[in-house]
Amino acid sequence: MIETARTTRAAGIEVRGVSMRYGNAEAGATLALKDVSLSIAPGSFFVLVGPSGCGKSSLLMMMTGLLQPTSGQILCGGQAMDKPYPDRAGVVFQEANLYPWLTAQKNVEFPLMLKGIPQEERSRRAIEALDLVGLAGFAQRHPHELSGGMKQRVSIARGLVQQPAVLLMDEPFAALDEQTRLTMGDELLRIWERTGQTIVFVTHSLTEAVYLADEIAVMSARPGQLMEIVAVDLPRPRSLEMMGTPEYAGLRNRIWQLIRNPAGPGHEH
């Protein structure tokens, strides 16, 4: 059953000169993202942070293929994300967005059902995915019978059930309380260590960013631009105790300075 682990092929993501403009030119279009280029290594945990309105969620939505950039290109495993490719990229949103009329298991089966995979295989893979997120005993519950954290786990299981090369997460724990949020972060790292796909994670919590990431892209607001990519060289597996170390605080502080004072990294030195 645990053989789902590591059968996944991770893929990298290339963001090449991506700009995003909302509205039409005459009526004062908003430039949400300006010429963002970055490269995400296969199998890495990549976090996007920045002030609200910096376009980090838009950038993630473009990686999912739900949104197309005004200019530039996004490649996942070398292929353009011109529409959603669910077996390439699983998506987890801020809200769990589960279908309230389906059980947890049927929710996880949903993407497999869309592809016409036979029921027997669907159930087997959904139960495996639920087991992976620690909800094997809750397969027959409906969403309204689950807590906020559990719903988000089901949503993660649904994102992982096709063993996509990349898991794209848009502030997935933002709606949860602080304690559940920390536990979920831990849980996600544990899952990622077993499955090994690339994770791109958007958050506005710097604590969460440093705790989870291999690399953190720090973005500036209006128009959203990439300021710096900060490598997080804290050892893995991460533990909550690390939050007390000077290295952790130093990284967090450095990112905070970047966001607070977007004049440039020069001033701090």
Binding site: T64, P84, Y99, F110, P111, L114, R158
Partner: peptide, 19 residues
């Protein structure tokens, strides 16, 4: 969001309507 989520999972227009 329920329909957007379905689209992210590759649902066609018909599948979004039916499911």
């Amino acid at each position: 969001h329920l329909a957007v989520t379905a689209r992210s999972m590759g649902a066609t227009l018909r599948q979004r309507l039916v499911h």
